[in-house]
Design a protein around this nucleic acid. Structure first.
Lengths: 270, 270
DNA sequence: TCATAGTTTTGCATGATACGCAATATATAT
DNA sequence: ATATATATTGCGTATCATGCAAAACTATGA
């Protein structure tokens, strides 16, 4: 049915109420605009008659979504808009949002995917989406990863405030001294601190973190952070498997992971 | 025509658009409700016909203010609502100013710090700066705090007009009756109202609000308001952590918080 | 001081459209 | 399987949002 003659005017889609659609367009415009504006300016921006916009604004003001400054003044977003947004934010739980999408990522990449958050002891797995071809591993929910020698950890490391990770980094440096294998794939440089710094740099640039099969023999992984408004990693998604493509940042799989994290990151901000 | 029979139901005020007023009432209800709801439940809450609400929701969904979960799913606030609120926040220069300084306060105190504003569900977190010291933070942007049993809430309570806070106070009094632990650290007096009054007094005098680990075991916090020209709290800054110094008003940490709020309060003139 | 030009706000008649009812489709429980 | 509850969609009619244009208002000029 969708057919032909909707073309007359894009029918705003189905089932809605026209006046409400129009009113919400006004609200969106007001939100997009830099700051407070007068009725006529807003009307011009929305390409609507002034009186129409004025009446919409009157209703918005009653609801507190908009407030008008001064006496016969300009209009701007109001307290209710703020509350509304904060309610929305409070309900949006990243872990759940990402979890819902994780199945999709598993399907696209064919890899087992997991979702980690930052906890006291470091990156911690909180969700686990297994692929048709399962990976035999010894870790499951609640496992914590190292910062330097896991893809997940590296993603956190590169996108977290230094103060947050430095205690753990210190510990891992000590461990790495005894077992240099752990950081074998780090960029080469003179001191270990330099190598770690370069790793952080490169990971930030690439936006994806990689480990090849050296840490756990044969197991490769590719991780990308989901950033909050401050650019910090709230959670990290990781694809693991034996496919060599995982350890190539330019592979299709890695790109899928990257795109996934980009999309969800942008939902976090605004 | 205007008058006379308006008394039947207050005429939503002047100049607006009835259908829009109704629609916004639906949106407000959705925001107030705990979480996602079905159409009929929402319709019941608004005392409106189901089909009406459904059509409003359709328009809200088009605008992205609302999204529906699942296939025959329930409705909840959407991404556009989030954006709207963030836009509204971004226009309050006090929020921006304080946010910028918050890193500094985190560095000075070594505690995780947060910035809260007043929304209609109460004190609401809008920014937070994590500190290295691991605090188990189950809250994020949009989390709301109680008025009586949190440091942030107490700071708002002591520096807000009574009309603003009284509805919430009433609710919390009821809750406190069932769980006296929540206000265990209140000053002692005969009636609960007296205790609350004294709390308000003392908090105003001290300019900082404190909770020790009783509300959330082991978690202490220290909060101070940033006052506008009327002496009301526009926003509140809070330092949280496990350090016992936080619950001592004379500690260095508490003084840092106080000084911070004093400085920014005085910077706010216009 | 008044006048001019830019606003924002408000009557009013009319035609578009939102409303409510009731039918259908879809999911959940028994 | 039937039954119950809920979500969604047509449809006719009375309501109400619309656009025009006049009014109130504010700001700036002489």
């Amino acid at each position: 049915m969708s057919d032909a003659q909707d073309t007359k005017l894009s029918h705003e889609a189905s089932g809605g109420i026209q006046s409400l659609d129009a009113a919400l367009r006004v609200l969106q415009h007001l939100a997009t605009l830099p700051g407070a504006v007068g009725v006529s300016e807003l009307a011009r921006a929305c390409d609507m008659p002034v009186s129409k916009v004025h009446r919409y604004l009157a209703s918005f003001v009653h609801a507190g979504l908009v407030q008008q400054n001064g006496r016969s003044g300009t209009y701007d977003l109001g307290l209710a808009a703020q509350s509304l947004g904060l309610s929305a934010l409070a309900r949006r739980d990243i872990v759940n949002t990402v979890s819902d999408e994780l199945v999709e990522l598993t399907r696209e990449t064919g890899c087992t995917t997991l979702l980690s958050v930052w906890a006291d002891l470091g990156p911690t797995v909180v969700r686990w989406q297994r692929a048709p071809a399962p990976v035999i591993t010894s870790f499951g929910l609640g496992t914590t990863f190292p910062l330097l020698s896991s893809a997940t950890g590296r993603a956190f490391f590169a996108h977290s405030p230094p103060e947050l990770v430095s205690p753990l980094i210190a510990r891992e440096k000590r461990r790495a001294k005894q077992n240099p294998l752990l950081i074998e794939d780090l960029p080469s440089a003179h001191t270990m601190d330099e190598r770690i710094d370069i790793l952080r740099q490169k990971t930030r640039e690439a936006q994806v973190a990689i480990v090849d099969g050296r840490f756990i023999p044969g197991l490769r992984a590719c991780a990308a952070p989901i950033l909050n408004w401050q650019g910090e990693a709230d959670v990290v998604v990781t694809a693991i498997g034996t496919d060599p493509a995982l350890s190539d940042p330019r592979s299709e799989t890695a790109q899928k992971v990257l795109e996934f994290s980009r999309r969800l990151s942008s939902e976090q901000q605004s």
